[in-house]
Amino acid sequence: PPVAAEEISATVVAGHPPVFRWVKHVSQTFIPAVNAALEGSDYSISWSEQYGGSLAKVGDELEATEEGLAEIGLVSSLFDPAKLAVQNVTYFTPFVSSDSTVVAEWMDKLQANDADMKASWEENGLEYLGGATGIDDYLLMTNFPVESISDLDGKKIGAPGPAVNWLKGTGAVGVSGNLTTYYNEIKTGVYDGVIVFASAAVPGKLYEVAPHVTRIGFGAQYAGGIAANKDWYDALPPMVQKALKGAAITNRIAYHKDLDATVGKFLNIMEENGATVTQVDEAFRKEWADGMDNVAKIWAEKLDADGVGGSRVLKSYMDTMRDAGATPVRNWDQE
């Protein structure tokens, strides 16, 4: 006689609402992929999807999953830089690669193979499933044209926490800011510009107030991925574990395909709405990168002092990206 199917319950948590692409794909790609993999087996999952702060705010997904309030979390390492320190390596190494698909694929591989990356998930009671959230190339959007770096002198530029470091050495004043208020802050003049990615700039209509879009090539970033509560995961039947990790890969591929398809479109939309999109040359990029402090080194040394292999991870990431064909403007690990 057939064994009665066992139903496993899983609460999935994300701090952002599903209008954000990375959350939408968890709901529309990851979950259906798990269900498809389990179809016809003895197991099925009953999902409870908790997005948009209903169970945890942005940056609190890790703790909610670690404590077991949710079984699976879309964990943002970007907003948990202390607990997932090594995962933030991309934000400390700008000008490496502008291809978010490549960055995400290799970061996912590092989560599985690099000892320090793995340890960092385990210390937080999590099993990393995969599904890296890559962020498309960050842009500089300003209300004044940027032809040379000296144009930035004394200008106030809003940027997400770690990207404030990118502005050091340019003469611009980096102000730690929040995506939700960029529009008004530029409009009233609190900021003269922002560092932001295209897939956020278009919905926020930032091109209206900051029509000068400069593609500096800061690079694509890794912002986090899908992780499960470790105790819960370890107790799952192997085939369910396999289904979850397989679905995370499917999710990463679908998300980045979607992202790539829209980024080009978004730049066009900005131009159609009167923005000027300029791409800086290699010399400009090099001048910018050379003028910066080596934040990667400061960051790696702090981690080394805390007993985490910061310098090793930095080298490992840079090597991995160089092997994958990236030509970093500055080799942060070799100074």
């Binding site: 830089p81 202390a82 400390f92 926490g161 770690p162 050091k168 402090d293 934040v295 702090k302 805390d306």
Partner: peptide, 12 residues
């Protein structure tokens, strides 16, 4: 764990 708020290199 010595967890902190902020960004290394800027403020923690």
């Amino acid at each position: 764990r010595g967890t902190y708020e902020g960004t290394v290199g800027d403020f923690t």
